[in-house]
Every structure is written in C-alpha cells, then in structure tokens.
Design a protein around this nucleic acid. Sequence first.
RNA 1: UGGGGCGUCGCCAAGUGGUAAGGCAACGGGUUUUGGUCCCGUCAUUCCUAGGUUCGAUCCCUAGCGCCCCAGCCA
Length: 559
Amino acid sequence: MSEHETTHFIAEIVENDLASGKHAEIVTRFPPEPNGYLHIGHAKSICLNFGLAGKYKGRCHLRFDDTNPSKEDVEYTESIQRDVRWLGFDWGAHLYFASDYYDRLYDFAVALIRKGKAYVCDLSADDMRRYRGTLSEPGQPSPNRDRGIDENLALFERMKAGEFPEGSRTLRAKIDMASGNINMRDPVIYRIMNAVHHRTGDRWRIYPMYDFTHCLSDSLEGITHSICTLEFEDHRPLYDWVLDELATPCHPRQIEFARLNLNYTVMSKRKLLELVTTKLVGGWDDPRMPTISGMRRRGYPPESIRAFCDKIGVAKANSTVEISYLEACVRETLNQGAPRAMAILDPLKVVVENWPEGKIELLDAPNNPEDPAAGTRPLPFSRELWIERDDFREVPPPKYFRLSPGSEVRLLHAYYLKCEKVVKDGAGKVVELRCTIDPATKGGWAHDGRKVKGTLHWLAADHCARAEVRLYDHLFTVADPGAEEKKGRDYRSLLNPDSLKVLPDCLVELGLASAKPGDRFQFQRQGYFCADPDGTPGKPVFNRIVGLKDAWAKIEKKA
RNA sequence: UGGGGCGUCGCCAAGUGGUAAGGCAACGGGUUUUGGUCCCGUCAUUCCUAGGUUCGAUCCCUAGCGCCCCAGCCA
C-alpha cells in the first residue's frame, strides 16, 4: 500500500487514544447492510476501517447490519464478502451479524423497559409522525408514554410472540419529545415485522432498529472507534444515550467523516439498484457501474482503488472527487505492471510493396518498457499489415506526426514505413495503403541519423486474432446528476447513451486469444484493457479499463 | 431566533498564532522506438465576508453569508 504518511483527524484520535492508554489495541468495524452491492464509496470506508486497524495493529470486524429483513438478502452478504476480500482485506475470524445478537438485544430492550426508559406505543405510523412535531416545533408525548413497567413488559413480550399485527405497535425509548434533535424524540427501537429474515427465518416477529442495534453491537464486539458517515452525526447523542442507560461491556466512540462522491456517476444504493432491476445497465457488475464488482470486471486493480482511497483523504467537508482522479490512480498502477500488446481497434490494411510475399519475420518486442524483467516476445511481420485507421490522414492537419501520403513513420519495434499510394473504393473511402519499408531500419532504428516523429502500432494481417472490444465512458452525461435531479430532471434521462461502445471486429496479437478473464494489458498507444468473462476461446472480449493520456487529442481539439 | 455539521487553488487536501504542504487537473519545456511513462518549471500576497484582539491570524473573538444533514415503524 502507499508509503506516504496518511494522517487525518481520525488517525489522530486513534493515535491519541493509544498514546494516552485509553486503548491498548483498537478495534474498528465495517458494518454494511446486506441490501445491495458495495460501491466505491464503501471502499473508502473499508480502506479507512481496515487500514486503521492494520496500521495501528488492531483488528477490524466485518459486521452485517441486518436488521431490516424486508430489504436484505444472502446474495448481498456473499457479494459483500467477496468484494471486501478482493479489495485486499481480511477480517480473520471476526465475521459478525447483528442478527446473531437478536436475543441479547431483546434482553437489553427489556432492561430498558425495567428502568422505565422504554415503552410500548400504540400510535400508528401516521399518528406517530404527527406527534413527533416538526423541525421547529416540539413533539407531543404519546398517549402511552407513561404506561406502567409491567404492562410494557407484558406488551413487549406479546409483540415478540407475534400477537399483534405488523405496524400496530412499537417499542420506543423514552427520552425527550421536545428535543431539538428529532432522533431524541422517543425514537422507535423495535417494530413488528412479518418478513422472513435471511438468517433467522421466521423466528422473530419484532426487529430492532438501527439506532438501538448498532451501538450495542459495537459494544458487544468491543469496538473502540465506530466510524460512520456524516449523516449519523445527529444520531450520536442517541448512540451514547443507549450505551449510557444500559449495562454494556464498553462505550465505543462514534466518529463521523464525509462520504465519498464521484462526479459523472451516482452513489445512491436506491438508484444503483434501480439501474440494475430496470436493466438500464447489465447488472451490478456492469463495468460502467461504480460498484466494486463493476470496477473489478472493468479491470481496475484493487491496489489502485486502495491508493485512490488513500489519496483522497478523510475529512468532514462534503466533497465530490473527480472521477479522473480515480482513473489517474488506475493508470499509475497499470503502467508499472501491465504487459504491452498490439491491438488494432479500427483496422486499415497496409501492403508493404517491397516485402516479399509469404515472408514472415519474427521481431523482438519488449513486454513492458517499464520492467525489463518482463522480457520480450516475438512479433511476426509480413507483407500485409493492419494499422489503426486513425493513424492515417490523407490530408494531415498541422502537427500530425502519423502516416499520410509520402510521409514516413516508425512501426513499433519493426521498420520505418513510408506511404507511397492510397487506395480508395468507389465511395472514396480509403481501403488500403501501399507502402514501403526501409530494410536498414530493422527493429525501428535508423542508422543514418534520420528521425521520424510518429510511431505506430501494427499487426501482421495473417498472424493476429479477432477480438471484441468494449469501450466505456462516463455513466452519466453530466458531472452532477443529483444537482440536475433537484432541478426536476429524472436522473435516468441523464444516462450517457454512449457509455458503452462495442467494437466487434478488432484485431489483437495471437497470444491474447488465450487471455483469461481478468488478465490486463496495455494496448499500446491506446489504453489499458482487461479480458472479460464473456470472451470465448475463439473470440476474446476486452474491456477498456481506461485510456492512455492522449496529447494528440488535446492538440486536435484546440485546433 | 429547532438541532447538528462544514466553508483553504478547477477537484481533493495539509495547516491548530509566526507569515499558505502535497496529489489530480491545467500550462510551458526536456527525454523517449507508446503524441504513454519519466524529468524540470509555472500555477492561492491569499485561506467565505466584515469587523476586532495581537508585533503578527487560515488559525483566537464577534457579527454576517453560503452549503450539507435530520421530521422512516430505512440504514
């Protein structure tokens, strides 16, 4: 992981607690609700929690906050574990489920009732909302607020036994209906639900709420630092209240930080779920999705995601990070390790007129100029070649270094190539280039001091494999779909229609035909690509992970 | 005149009274058999605003302004 000093206010708190002896060892936790797939925002939290535990020699638990059976599913508990592991983190033996604490949680609730700090409320959801008051007006006490302890105990017992219909009663903490903090206006801590829980089945008819469950789960596990996002700041007084009222093993400190936002995408679980269920994308692992599984399929290396999370920092100010920053992190790690390969996305035929028909020459190509240890591979050269259509212009614009009539370029690792003639079809489309090579430039070196400005990638026509290539762009056309939505636009209408471009007839080096899903390459001069599981032995499929920086595109755009 | 937070370069983000780190982006230049990588340079006299305290304030005080979150029997 990154060497540079990662220091932020949470690390500072941890360091102080360790230095002061408040804690001998820190314990953090990543507490997802299994109601969707993890996304890059979760990755920030995962890196933070597991990262802190790793750096300060503590431990980090993976705990599923599964208290709402109506939205949760085992599919998600599985995908979440897969994703956390893939990111490079290990919870060891510390895998927990809030649902495993249901019995103890129930006992805690009973204890609260005994203390006169909780009561069974008969208000309907609508009435409860009315009694709650508003942001600027205090709430009114529930008619059941002063119900006797024994009656509360009996009623709660009967709630548990399933004697009452869903929604008919709740257990509420008795705190302060006039509090400016609405979370403290006698919050519901248990509700009646008939849903089947993915782990406890139909054993329970009542389910604890987040505010009651989370702090107690933390305490039961001996968590020292309970790190969550900003929107829970208002819940901290309640977190502390519950732990102060009950006899618990310890009282973790809740610390809030700003969640990650990325531009040109959405991070809301609801929207991501909707994109998946309405088939606006191919699934949770669609390479355009900001999900961990999407990024994995796209080809983002896990270490680049970790580096990104490390670099963006941790603070309390809401912020939106440019997705290009993530892409820069991906390029950085891929540049070091990805083997280079020739691939032609949009082929244009070149016939080398002074190269004998049928002659094949094997040239030596380094696998990675950044890493000599990666070795070399033989590259066949022949009379007929493919080059990138975009690497030829009949009328070259200013500063165009590539091929044009009469110009000379270098074929990477091969020869200097000169364009002698342009062949067009009836419609005027260029279909073939008649060229010559300079035999004295084998390997791509001219020994007469002659320089060439452009270097092109290429493939021998009869010695390459077909491949499908999928090019991706931002999921949305606007940087901030949320802002547009506030102006009345449906975020779905902001989806980028060009976010996926399928190129069915690309050409790649023969060796890539056997690439395994997940294998990553740099297609020289173009970008980084990753073999997709959709590929077949005869026809591999490559996802563009991210393009290389393109100085020429910039020049051309300016002109 | 409900409560809780936050405001430092286009985007992140250090800084905790001694005179504005770093990364990304951008721009200029060098190297280069990827117009990639790499290297060098430029890029906030200014820290939301206005007052005040101080020899000195992004950091302290006061008053404003702006933005985010909260009225689920979601998490």
